[in-house]
């Protein structure tokens, strides 16, 4: 029976069971996530939607191991996160998860190509391979010839493209994007989403968005709606 369970967990890139997260806010106990069972298969393009405070970001933080659940477990690529030590978890995240944040969060003193290659440096990829992969990914996100620029010299859309390149360059199994279009106009946001969808199709990487932006919802193949920390709806769109 247990063996069956293990096999079942390994079928999913993300497998959560009974996730709960309670934290204290000004002395009051707040339940941000209440018993979420989420399963994502490899290659999915999924959006978690819901109003502010519904638990979207908390869920993404727990899935990525940035935060810990009060109750319940998370398996990523079949590995149970709660069993990993801090350092092991940092290495696991580096090798398997790419992050895209609302405010881009590039390192302003590093040039575009240095920002993108940072994760590969942590992974110990050699210089030649790093250079090759940086050029490839910048090409894919439409930033050819911009590798030498510093992030503050780029537009919001261009900065988010760099963030996408940074998240994808190490070819992680899962990309977590927290409100990636929130700071962008609809045209730029739409173009970026189309690009990510295309990359998802080409590379087979799994994308999980937290958003309340229709631009994302329209393009997601699966939409999970959260309310008060619980899954209200889980819809898979027909292709």
């Amino acid at each position: 029976m247990e063996e069956m369970n293990v096999r079942k967990i390994k079928d999913y890139i993300v497998y959560t069971e009974g996730l709960e997260k309670t934290y204290k806010d000004n002395g009051l106990e707040v339940k941000a996530v209440r018993g979420i069972d989420l399963r994502l298969k490899s290659g999915e393009f999924t959006a978690v939607v819901g109003p502010s405070g519904s638990g979207k970001t908390t869920l993404l933080n727990i899935i990525s191991g940035l935060d810990t659940a009060t109750r319940g477990e998370v398996w990523l690529k079949g590995r149970l996160l709660s069993k990993m030590k801090k350092r092991e978890l940092a290495d696991f995240r580096r090798d398997n998860i790419g992050f895209i944040f609302q405010a881009y969060n590039l390192i302003p003193v590093l040039r575009v190509e240095e920002n993108v290659e940072y994760i590969m440096l942590l992974q110990g990829v050699n210089k030649l391979e790093r250079h090759k992969r940086v050029l490839e990914i910048l090409d894919e996100v439409g930033l050819q010839g911009m590798g030498n620029r510093l992030p503050p010299k780029l537009s919001g859309g261009q900065q988010q493209r760099v963030a996408i390149a940074r998240a994808m360059v190490s070819r992680p199994a899962l990309i977590l994007a927290d409100e990636p279009t929130a700071n962008l106009d609809s045209k730029t946001g739409g173009a970026l989403l189309d690009m990510m969808k295309e990359l998802n199709r080409k590379t087979g990487m799994t994308f999980l968005f937290s958003t309340h932006d229709n631009i994302v919802v329209e393009r997601a193949r699966r939409v999970i709606t959260l309310q008060d920390g619980k899954i209200l709806k889980d819809e898979v769109k027909e292709r």
Partner: peptide, 12 residues
Amino acid sequence: EFGVLRAVGTRP
């Protein structure tokens, strides 16, 4: 920024 560095896999 330090949060991001840690999130993307920089060890403590």
